[in-house]
């Protein structure tokens, strides 16, 4: 009797382990995401400055790179897609590729996610339901207009502020903590 119980226990615990492994494995099996690595994918830049990728024996002449986490980590889990939004595969991390390829992919991110980062807020003036921003950004001095309210300036992480202008252009303050008191005061009114 005793032996049966212990046997039963062993069987049970083995089953539990199996289930655990099963769930961990089956999640990725079920998701069935194809990961691109430096061994199975070959990226190159076309004559027309587009990105192309060859996976196995199939070449996709034009693909685009989407970030899964554009605000929190731009370098991991990138999705390589065609213009029809069909996923060719995912890249776990840019670190998995050679520096040259990583740079090529980053160029693509630069094209898709054009968002000047605000380095310095020169002035934010509010008038009639709009605020007019004058800022120094990574792309130079930018002046733009933001409609008040409606989440046009919102924190996407506790410290990262995304500002959307009247035409939908995006700007970002990467770290609110790095603003001076004066800058913070000007920006805060629009949040």
């Amino acid at each position: 009797m005793i032996s049966t119980t212990s046997e039963k226990e062993t069987v049970a615990s083995q089953a539990a382990e199996a289930v655990q492994e099963g769930t961990a494995g089956s999640l990725s099996d079920a998701a069935d995401i194809y990961y691109l690595t430096k061994d199975n994918a070959e990226f190159s830049k076309t004559a027309g400055s587009m990105l192309s990728v060859t996976v196995g024996d199939q070449t996709h002449p034009v693909v685009y790179v989407h970030c899964s986490f554009p605000h929190t980590n731009k370098r991991m889990y990138l999705s390589v897609r065609t213009v029809e939004n069909k996923e060719i595969g995912m890249i776990r991390s840019l670190e998995d590729f050679s520096e040259e390829i990583a740079q090529l992919l980053e160029e693509q991110l630069q094209i898709r996610y054009f968002t000047p980062e605000i380095k310095r807020v020169i002035a934010v003036k509010e008038e009639f339901g709009y605020s007019y921003w004058e800022t120094e950004t990574t792309a130079g001095l930018c002046r733009f207009t933001v409609r008040n309210g409606g989440g046009n300036a919102k924190l996407v992480t506790p410290n990262r502020l995304l500002v959307t202008d009247v035409d939908g252009n995006r700007f970002v303050i990467p770290d609110m903590n790095r603003l001076t008191d004066k800058e913070y005061r000007m920006v805060e009114i629009c949040m």
């Binding site: 004559a47 027309g48 400055s49 996610y113 054009f114 959307t164 035409d167 939908g168 252009n169 995006r170």
Partner: peptide, 28 residues
């Protein structure tokens, strides 16, 4: 046009795809 995040890009096919230029959202 290829829609990017908050901007766009004009592309021509001649016969390969070629980037013509990119533009900010206001020019969409």
């Amino acid at each position: 046009i290829v829609n990017l995040v908050a901007s766009g890009m004009l592309v021509m096919k001649a016969p390969e795809e070629n980037i013509i230029a990119a533009f900010t959202n206001g020019l969409m």
